[in-house]
């Protein structure tokens, strides 16, 4: 399963990174969860986070892995060590998008 965070309510993720990752995700044909803001979802303790954390191989496009793991834990769901977190704040979008969707669909 793929989880994409749009970080819609702040300007910390470069727009071109979000656009490139979203385009690749849409083109991949894979099933995914795209959320406007993972922080907000964590604050609401959205049960979908638990479902995602429990899904086998989770790949997440968001921000810093330490923060993402903390957001899941704050919502009461611990991410498996095997979950892969791709940081849109610090990784080249093309590279990130390719790794995120590799082997999907």
């Amino acid at each position: 399963m793929i989880l994409y965070c749009h970080c819609a309510f702040a300007k910390v993720v470069p727009p071109e990174a979000k656009q490139a990752v979203l385009a690749q995700l849409a083109a991949s044909g894979a099933e995914f969860e795209a959320v406007p803001d993972l922080c907000e979802m964590s604050a609401r303790r959205d049960p979908r986070l638990g479902e995602l954390a429990a899904s086998g191989e989770l790949r997440i496009a968001a921000c810093y892995p330490r923060a993402v793991r903390g957001l899941f834990e704050a919502a009461g769901h611990r991410l498996a060590d095997s979950a892969q977190i791709f940081n849109m704040r610090a990784t080249a979008p093309e590279q990130l998008a390719a790794e995120l969707t590799a082997g999907s669909a």
């Binding site: 385009a23 849409a26 083109a27």
Partner: peptide, 29 residues
């Protein structure tokens, strides 16, 4: 792919979460 990307961006920009599904199933909300 392009239609899907436009739709995703439009919904996310307005603050809606989007679950992309290829089959109907139980959803946790």
């Amino acid at each position: 792919g392009e239609e899907r990307a436009r739709l995703l961006a439009a919904l996310l920009d307005k603050g809606f979460a989007v679950t992309s599904l290829r089959e109907a199933r139980e959803l946790t909300v």
